[in-house]
């Protein structure tokens, strides 16, 4: 009796192991393979433009990336060689700095209000509005600042106007990423702080912000990277300059004159028939791509030990 019981037990165990073996050619396994291949292929196709752009820009731009590029002024159209984009590089840095100086405090504070102090209903509408603003084409932002600051002669074509346009562009990105970073901090941690007799603003300053800081830093660097590469908002606002218009000895008043930027330099020089200027445009493009890559890596590094 007991041996027959064991036998039947063994047989059923064997049947089980058979049934878990892979079956070639079943409908399910073909589907599995097909979907894996199709989605994998789409991934490769999606990545092709990224690699082509990087490779092409590197090949075209690397030759011209010499010391002169970083130290000299843009060459006149007929100069066969030489020249650089030193003023454009400084211009981009100055305008991104102005943009960040305006948008970071406003954006971060607005996000803190949104995430920590506003009612759900208000927050919903502000988030909606921020999404709309981030969807506004950047050229419209340029035209808006043109109408607001340039046409009215408040600043005229200037670094200030360009920086303000970049600030408007960065604002929704900063608000949204900061808001999201704050939302990730668990409600329980806020409650713990409030439960210990901290006020809501102490809770935000002492617990929530420090906990969210790595994620906020990521958002800020991404906003900076985005602004550094923008052309459209600058064409109407900062214009361009072949010469040094930013004078470190008198930084304040030089902010009110037109200023060069890398992106507008690329835009101007890419469409001209002069080889030297074209090459310079490639080199400037390479710098812009490098800025984006660098900031992305930087933001990865900043969040390497994120808390939540």
């Amino acid at each position: 009796m007991s041996s027959s019981h064991q036998l039947s037990h063994k047989r059923s165990a064997k049947a089980d192991t058979d049934s878990i073996n892979q079956k070639q050619g079943s409908r399910q396994s073909i589907g599995e393979t097909a979907w894996t291949v199709i989605s994998g292929l789409c991934l490769v196709i999606a990545l092709i433009p990224l690699f082509l752009v990087i490779i092409y820009v590197v090949i075209k731009g690397i030759n011209r990336l010499d010391v002169a590029a970083f130290t000299e002024l843009p060459p006149p159209p007929l100069a066969d060689e030489g020249g650089g984009f030193a003023n454009a590089l400084i211009g981009t840095l100055v305008m991104v700095a102005i943009g960040a100086l305006i948008s970071v405090p406003f954006g971060v504070m607005a996000a803190i209000y949104l995430s920590e102090f506003s009612s759900k209903k208000i927050a919903k509408w502000i988030r909606f509005a921020t999404n709309i603003l981030s969807g506004v084409p950047s050229i419209l932002i340029g035209v808006f600042i043109y109408g607001l600051l340039v046409l009215t002669n408040v600043t005229g074509y200037s670094a200030i106007a360009g920086g303000t346009a970049l600030a408007v562009l960065m604002l929704p990105i900063i608000v949204r990423t900061t808001d999201e970073s704050l939302q990730i901090v668990p409600r329980q941690v806020r409650w713990a702080s409030v439960g210990l007799g901290a006020s809501r603003y102490e809770t935000v300053l002492r617990v929530v912000l420090p906990a969210a800081l790595p994620a906020i830093a990521t958002g800020l660097t991404l906003a900076v990277a985005r602004a550094a590469g923008e052309t459209a908002p600058l064409i109407f606002t900062a214009l361009f300059a072949q010469f040094w218009t930013f004078n470190p000895a008198d930084p304040f008043s030089s902010l009110f004159s037109p200023i060069a930027s890398l992106s507008v330099l690329v835009y101007n020089f890419a469409a001209v028939p002069y080889k030297n200027q074209q090459e310079l445009a490639w080199a400037a493009s390479l710098i812009l791509v490098a800025i984006v890559l660098l900031t992305s890596i930087l933001s990865r590094w900043a969040t390497r030990n994120r808390i939540y």
Binding site: Q188, V189, W191, A192, I307, Y308
Partner: peptide, 14 residues
């Protein structure tokens, strides 16, 4: 400040 609280999930600050 007079009435402390301990929560369901341990929630130390980071």
């Amino acid at each position: 400040r007079r009435i402390g609280m301990v929560f369901q999930q341990p929630n130390p600050f980071p």
